[in-house]
Amino acid sequence: MEWSIRADRPVYLQLLEQLEAAVASGVYAPGERLPGVRELAAQAGVNPNTMQRALAELEARGLVRTQRTAGRTVTDDAQAIAAARRALAERHARDYLASARALGLDDNEAAALLAAVIQEG
């Protein structure tokens, strides 16, 4: 998995966002075992405590589970993953709409533009 962490925003939030995206898009498959905290932190180049905090939040949101023997695994719950995927996509959609409006497009133009891009493939 590719990490892109900037230093000017709280690192924990960025880790959370990118982990959510990874689970939602299947980079970490349902039921797949995650690497340990230290290993993930080393891969991302961040502090293990910060990674731990992000993973704990991910668990609170139901996207990963901690099992006593198997460590942390991605949830099997397809609905939870689908919900996360939808939530992320919705966020991107809102971002797009906000950008389009900032550029001066009205909502109809924004929707038409999106349809055209989908047409192109």
């Binding site: 962490i5 230093a7 690192v11 932190a41 991302a44 180049g45 961040v46 502090n47 405590n49 910060t50």
Partner: peptide, 9 residues
């Protein structure tokens, strides 16, 4: 600092 700050608590 730039290189190292992401690993600091």
């Amino acid at each position: 600092i730039g290189d190292v700050e992401r690993i600091l608590d």
